[in-house]
Computed example of a mutant assay.
Amino acid sequence: MTRPSGAAPVPTLGRPRLRGLLIQAGLIVVVAALAWVAVINVAENLARANIATGFDFWNVTAGFDISQTLIFYSAQASTYGRAFWVGFLNTVLVAALAIALATIIGFVVGIARLSPNFLVAKLASGYVELIRNIPLLLQLLFWYNAVLKALPDIRDSVMLPGGGYLNIRGLFLPAPNVFGGQTLALVLLGGIVAAIAWRWWRRKTGRIAATPLDIAVMAFLVLGLPLLVAIFIEARISFAYPQMGRFNIRGGLEILPEFVALLAGLSIYTAAFIAEVVRAGLLSVPKGQTEAAYSLGLRRGPTMRLVVVPQAMRVIVPPLTNQYLNLFKNSTLAVAIGYPDLVQIFTGTVLNNTGQAVEVVVLTMAVYLTISLATSLAMNIYNKRVMLVER
């Protein structure tokens, strides 16, 4: 059917666009209605079962002990809210250390898989195939029950040089006490930030490679400045040594076997996947780049560090982000070996004591969601920096 001459053209974009907006608005209304109905049903069921709602339990005294605390915590004086922060910090500590260790191990193994040395390449390949095909939970149980539970009892503790002890309860080391420690920590943190800012500014001004001036300035900011402040405030360092008792060891720095088992399991398991990501990224770099570097006189080490790895990062970073997120979420398996993380403390002990499952579970899910989104945002920002820009 033909349109009569002189007639106004029929809009081809307005109606489909309007129809799409109406459909999306209707979908939002339906989802909101379903969510509202679910909230009403949950509230009615909780009221019918005489279960309290709200976050009034946050300021109630906890009344239970926690084996590892990075901040002050007392079973008689601290609240459920304080217990939440203890579990949160324990989770962040083990996840951050595991991410650092897994990244180092993964890069080393991934590069080793492409080594011209037959033995090194096969050992790296065997590590990847063995570790990534065994469930993480079994690996955690192996480290905890088969390795760390085989350590001697307290009475037969292994004495370490410097005043430390090793037994089935964990590793006990001298704990440093630093006079003016908070000031030194702030100065050290400020020096690190200043060193990063200096390097960023130098790269912006065209100094891509670090010069002796850059190294000297950053070394002063990170090491020299805290040393000068320590001399100025007459900082002193003393050590609190662990003392062997009849049934236990008091004082010093205690590293729990649950912490070591979780850290080892997460690091080694995730490193196997990171190694494959690194290997794929290295193989994505054209071979001509390596040959060009060799023709300029670079050896294998500098070629890998200066030519291949920087170009491979654009392929490595996106799947590496997924591995970091998986590691953080896999840390919830800590409950299987008794490590006091957020899930074990908050959705375990606190939930059992208060009975407020909805609030506790929703808050825990919100924490993991927030940290995952923050990690993704940071890695996406870094990914934009390492992406190759077509000219």
Rank of each mutant, 00 (worst) to 15 (best):
G191F: 01
N322W: 05
A49T: 05
I105Q: 09
L173H: 11
P318N: 03
L363H: 01
L282A: 10
R207G: 01
I208D: 12
V86A: 04
V335L: 12
V386T: 09
Y269Q: 10
I40N: 07
V308I: 15
A210Y: 12
W143H: 07
M365W: 01
A52C: 07
F239T: 08
I105Y: 08
R300Y: 13
R207M: 11
A38D: 14
I316C: 09
V229A: 10
L223D: 03
G6W: 04
N133L: 05
T211W: 09
V178R: 12
A96Y: 01
T69D: 03
F88K: 02
V217I: 14
G338W: 06
A272L: 06
A374N: 00
A357R: 07
A75D: 14
A25V: 05
R250V: 12
A272P: 02
V60T: 14
S238P: 00
P226D: 00
P242T: 09
K204D: 12
G106M: 11
G162I: 09
A121G: 07
L137A: 12
S74K: 08
L306M: 09
G338E: 04
P257E: 03
T347P: 00
A121P: 02
L228G: 10
P116N: 09
G355I: 10
A235H: 12
W58Q: 02
A216E: 07
R19P: 00
D341E: 15
S5I: 12
Q344N: 12
T183A: 10
I208H: 01
A194P: 10
L93E: 02
L320D: 04
G355M: 10
E390H: 09
Y241K: 07
V30L: 15
S238T: 15
R203M: 09
K287R: 14
A185R: 10
F239H: 04
A43W: 00
A77Y: 11
Y269F: 15
M218V: 14
G126V: 06
